[in-house]
Design a protein around this nucleic acid. Structure first.
Lengths: 172, 172
DNA sequence: TCAAAATATTTTAAGCTTAAAGTATTTCGG
DNA sequence: CCGAAATACTTTAAGCTTAAAATATTTTGA
């Protein structure tokens, strides 16, 4: 059997199941990626809570609506946010109760409803978004513009590599 | 495109708040980092569930115990995993109920207890870890060794930059 | 047309997660 | 020694999240 054929697997796309199970570099990369992201996400959550008394999921939902002033259905929110339908149902309920959203039936589909930011919701979101943008800039202030470009490129490559594994891959 | 003179609300106050509030590059980087990490994490969760009927937090807890055969206190688990004490209490309860953990009182401190993998837990974890390692290798298969090095370095830089913001920073 | 399939949403049950408050024990300073 | 502070852990209340089942409506195809 092919033993010492270390030669770069190229794009072979053959599962890694090659020789020995030594994938320490990839494991360490994944651990660092996860730790780093969680650290940033935790800090953003903490600040949103302490400064604006809002949770990250609610902020994210409001951000989607801010980008779509015409309103969105729950299904659109669900797919844009990459979370389940039931999740969106609950988030919208709570934001409606806070008076940050408006809701109206879809004119074309009686199953669906359209939600959008209320005027209070839009005002609140704009204020939060400005500050949030500065937090993010501060967090990445240690990276040069070149670093940011490099990281964008590498993350793009990672995303593409991951996409090959998600959903099917083997499916005909 | 956006109108180009939106009169930046220049509310300064933070260090980044230089001239204009244009931190689009950093925002896009953060969005991509988050999306990429969530995509990978979601896939790993899905596979752990479908293949081994285990959740990621339980897998992570078992991984800590596998690295510490002498047993760990809940507090050690909590700080290593970077989650709250109450969270660990619940995870340990469920893993004990599954027979995957052993628990004994700490010989030196009657407030504390030591938990470790049961023999069944160790056997189960080892099997899962081997497969998990291959999943991670597959996911990052699109990155060259050089890419992995670059990404490790950039994430290290990001982590250091973030650490400056977390906990205090302004505190005297 | 009309029944079956697809779609939009809600409900349910289970688990993860946290902050804050509470309990038990240990440590420390006087 | 002894009371105060610190530490290890648990409990509680609230919210996030998902998969799966259920409901309502629309679309589709014979």
């Amino acid at each position: 059997m092919m033993e010492d054929t270390v030669a770069v697997p190229l794009d072979a796309e053959t599962k890694v199941a090659e020789r020995p199970g030594d994938h320490q570099a990839e494991l360490r990369l994944w651990l660092r990626l996860l730790t780093c992201t969680n650290m940033i996400e935790g800090e953003i959550r903490r600040r949103l809570r302490d400064t604006f008394h809002v949770t990250l999921p609610r902020f994210d939902l409001m951000a989607q609506l801010d980008k779509n002033p015409g309103g969105m259905t729950l299904g659109e929110l669900s797919s844009r946010m990459m979370v389940s339908n039931g999740n969106v149902t609950g988030l919208v309920e709570r934001l409606l109760a806070q008076g940050l959203l408006d809701r109206r039936p879809s004119p074309s589909d009686r199953r669906a409803q359209l939600v959008s930011l209320s005027s209070e919701g839009r005002r609140a979101f704009r204020a939060m978004a400005r500050t949030h943008e500065n937090w993010i800039a501060d967090i990445f202030a240690g990276l040069s513009p070149g670093d940011i470009d490099d990281m964008m490129r590498l993350l793009g490559k990672t995303k593409a590599s991951t996409a090959r594994m998600v959903a099917g891959k083997d499916a005909p």
